[in-house]
Design a protein around this nucleic acid. Sequence first.
DNA 1: GATAGTTTCATACAAATGTTTGAAATGCAA
DNA 2: TTGCATTTCAAACATTTGTATGAAACTATC
Lengths: 229, 229
Amino acid sequence: MASDHTRSAILAAAERLYADRGFGDVTLRDIVAEANVNLAAVNYHFGSKDELIAELFVTRSIQTNRERLNELRAAEDAGGGRAAIEDIMRALVGPTLRGCLGPDREGSTAARFMIRASIESVPPIRRIKNREVDHLRKFAAAMRRAMPGRDDTELYWGLHFALAMAHHTIREKERLLRLSEGKCDLDDVRAIIDRVVTVSVMALTIGDMPSKPAARPVLVHGRLTRQDL
Amino acid sequence: MASDHTRSAILAAAERLYADRGFGDVTLRDIVAEANVNLAAVNYHFGSKDELIAELFVTRSIQTNRERLNELRAAEDAGGGRAAIEDIMRALVGPTLRGCLGPDREGSTAARFMIRASIESVPPIRRIKNREVDHLRKFAAAMRRAMPGRDDTELYWGLHFALAMAHHTIREKERLLRLSEGKCDLDDVRAIIDRVVTVSVMALTIGDMPSKPAARPVLVHGRLTRQDL
DNA sequence: GATAGTTTCATACAAATGTTTGAAATGCAA
DNA sequence: TTGCATTTCAAACATTTGTATGAAACTATC
């Protein structure tokens, strides 16, 4: 392989276009035009369109996962093998949130691509995401060490909710901004991470929930009108 | 209009197929084959494929929003115009979670369709979702009445996190099930709603930590009661 | 500098897909 | 029935799209 020029030009162009316009709207012809390479180059270098997308996503996922594990290990080392639960949750959601939010990141193609991958779920990306469970298990294990004796179920729910808040904030940041009329500062990533971590740790403390009164009966539907939406 | 037969056959077939196989994999030809109608019927009755999808999604969204507002109003009436924050959050996430989770709902085409719409974000659906802000504002207003004096920002974040947990649970229920090796019971919808509501209400309390330290939620392992909030 | 292996290129292919068309069928009112 | 509007139908259209092909250009090794 003399030079990676074509290959990396395709990767860069594809990531930029996918980030900006989404997977559904970008064709291979768009990508090769942006990269100034021949149409056949994609299949030559990557095999297929799906493998190109997969390579993009895997690369970025590995980066995020590595950052997460680095933070986790640092926290565990600092705590003599057992990290504080706050730091574990911070290691879980911090890298993703830092990567996808913040004013300076607005121009980051990688971040915008990952947001897009989070919003539009296409088959090659879904296949990869399904393998993410092994990675999350490492965090579940760390949480178990940090909160020994706690029911595993609670751990999983806490981890799940932490990811929920982080990902939903990335996915729906525009809506939150509009809903709050700009009052929610989505550029202050530090504060957002703190907020998510705080709530996540809180969620982990509700061990045995009191049974609540039964949910109210579902009310009858009337005729649907457009105004209801 | 003599009979809605063809029209509703298309709607039913489309919803079922989209729910089962996703938007990307289902073509108009699949739909008309399932509905036993002619291919041109879709364009005749709906104008275009996107308008068909939009109609499906709008109908189901209206139902959910209606249920939400009914629950909210019921809670406000029961509280003499001011609903408890728990009930507001319950009205927000309850209908969606009840609609999309639970063992009996496994066969519900409507629920599976909405899950699919939540996972695969396709252009016509995204356009409709963008109009959802007005609906959420009604909940923000109710929350403001329930927690007067609280900073609006905190309200929005709490509302945002509640939706985050609800939607993420629907979107990623398979992963949570696999991660927890079946330990997290995703069929016990009541418990899930309670959990989401509890954490959401907790999240709403982190705003007044500096000014009202006494009002902080109890972080010990015991039960969380109303006065703790 | 000839040769073998690699990469690029223009072009073609094949399949899928949403949409349109114009005629036939159907329903309904006068 | 007759006439008019609505609905259905088979067929074709027009693109778009990912992929394959085979020759040409290039590179590196001998």
